[in-house]
C-alpha cells in the first residue's frame, strides 16, 4: 500500500479531511472512512458503474479513482441527491415508474442520470440520448425500459416546473393491461 496522505474534498456539500494511502480507491474512502455506503461495487474494474459518483459534476467510476486524485474535488454521492427528506425529481420518478428493482445499480444509475439532466439544462433528452448516456451503468433487472422512462419523466417535470407546477406522469407509458371480458376471477377462500 502507498504512503498515507491527507486529502481534502467536498463531499455532498461538506468539506471532509481524510488521511489515507494515496492509492486507496475513492470508493473505499467514501465507504470506509466517510461511512457513505451508498456507492456499491459490482466489478471493481470500471465496467458496471455501481460505484458512480459525481466528481466536479461528471459521473465517474469511484473504483478507478485513487484518493490522491480526488484531492480538492467536489464530490456528490447518492446520499447527496435528496435535500433532507425531499427527494429529487429523478429519485421520485424512479420510485413511481419502477426504475429501481433490486436497487444495487440504482445509486450509480441515479448519479449518471443526474449528470445527464444537468447537462440537458431543462431540455427533455430523447430516448436514444438517455440510453447512450446510461450505457456505462449496468442493470440486470429492469431491461432499462423503466429507467429510461423515469429519467425522461423527471426531465419533463423539471421542464414543466419552470412553466407551472406539474407532477411526473404516474402511468407507465409503455404498458397496457388488457383484461378478458370473462367473469371476475374467483379467489380461494379458506
Amino acid at each position: 500500500m502507498s504512503r498515507p496522505i491527507r486529502v481534502t474534498m467536498t463531499v455532498n456539500g461538506r468539506r471532509r479531511h481524510v488521511t489515507v494511502p494515496a492509492m486507496k480507491r475513492l470508493r473505499d474512502v467514501l465507504r470506509e472512512d466517510l461511512k457513505l455506503s451508498g456507492s456499491k461495487e459490482g466489478c471493481g474494474e470500471g465496467e458496471c458503474g455501481a460505484c458512480s459518483v459525481l466528481i466536479d459534476g461528471k459521473s465517474v467510476n469511484s473504483c478507478l479513482v485513487p484518493a490522491a486524485q480526488a484531492s480538492g474535488a467536489r464530490i456528490v454521492t447518492i446520499e447527496g441527491l435528496a435535500r433532507g427528506r425531499r427527494l429529487s425529481a429523478l429519485q421520485r420518478a424512479f420510485i413511481e415508474l419502477g426504475g429501481a428493482q433490486c436497487g444495487i445499480c440504482t445509486p450509480g444509475m441515479l448519479i449518471t442520470a443526474t449528470e445527464l439532466l444537468q447537462r440537458a439544462k431543462g431540455r427533455v433528452p430523447g430516448d436514444q440520448e438517455v440510453r447512450e448516456a446510461l450505457a456505462g451503468n449496468l442493470c440486470r433487472c429492469t431491461g432499462y425500459q423503466k429507467i429510461v422512462d423515469a429519467v425522461r419523466a423527471a426531465a419533463r417535470t423539471r421542464v414543466s416546473a419552470k412553466r407551472a407546477k406539474a407532477r411526473p406522469r404516474a402511468a407507465a407509458a409503455r404498458t397496457r393491461v388488457s383484461a378478458k371480458r370473462s367473469a371476475r376471477p374467483k379467489t380461494r377462500r379458506p
Binding site: R140, G143, Q145, S178
Partner: peptide, 25 residues
C-alpha cells in the same frame, strides 16, 4: 470479468413494448 463477459447495456437494449393479457386462473 465484466470486461469480456458481455451483458446488454442501455445502449444495446431496444425499446420493449409490453402488453399484459389477463386471463384469470
Amino acid at each position: 470479468q465484466l470486461t469480456n463477459y458481455i451483458i446488454p447495456t442501455s445502449a444495446d437494449a431496444p425499446p420493449i413494448e409490453v402488453e399484459i393479457v389477463e386471463i384469470p386462473y
